[in-house]
Write a protein that binds this DNA or RNA. Sequence first.
DNA 1: CAAGTGATTAGC
DNA 2: CTAATCACTTGC
Length: 160
Amino acid sequence: MIVETEAYKSVNDRASHAHLGKRTKRNEAMYSMGGIVYVYICYGIHALLNIVTNVKDTPDAVLIRAIEPIDGIKIMQSRLSSNFLKKLTSGPGKLSKALGIDIRFNKEKLINDKIWITSYRNKSDFTIDKRPRIGINYAGDDANFLWRFYIHNNQYISKI
DNA sequence: CAAGTGATTAGC
DNA sequence: CTAATCACTTGC
C-alpha cells in the first residue's frame, strides 16, 4: 500500500528533472502520457519509482517514497536481507528493491502483468499530512512547497 | 553525522 | 573527453 508520495511538476519546480521543459534520455519517460512508469537511478545505486500523471508532453510525475508491506513480505525480506518490517519499504530506494523494480521498468505501462496499482483502502479511512519534499535543497525556494504527502500516523513512511 | 556509489549531465 | 552533480542509504 502506498503511504508516502511527492509531486514533481514541469514548470515552476526546480526540483523536477523536467524543470523548464528539460528533456534528456533519462527523463524521456516523463513526457509520456499519464499512467506510464518513470524509473531512474539515483546516486548511482538506487532505482526510484515515479508515476507520470499528466497528458503527453506535459512532464508531471509523482514519486513513490514509501509503501506499507501487505503481501509477499518474505520475498521483500530476502531482497533487503532484513527481517525488520518497518525498514523494508520505508524509502524510495528500498521499496524499489523490495518490489524488484529496476531501470528495466522505465516507460512501462502501469496496467500490465509486470507492474500495476489498484485501490486498496478508501480515502475516508485515513487523513493525509503535507510536508516539504525531501532531499532537494538545491531547488531553492521550490523546496518549500508542501508537495510531500503521507498517511497520518502511518508507521512505514520514510521520515517524519 | 559522513562517505560511498556510479549513471547522467553539462561544460570544455 | 572530464568533472560535477545527485528524488538515498548505511554504517560509523
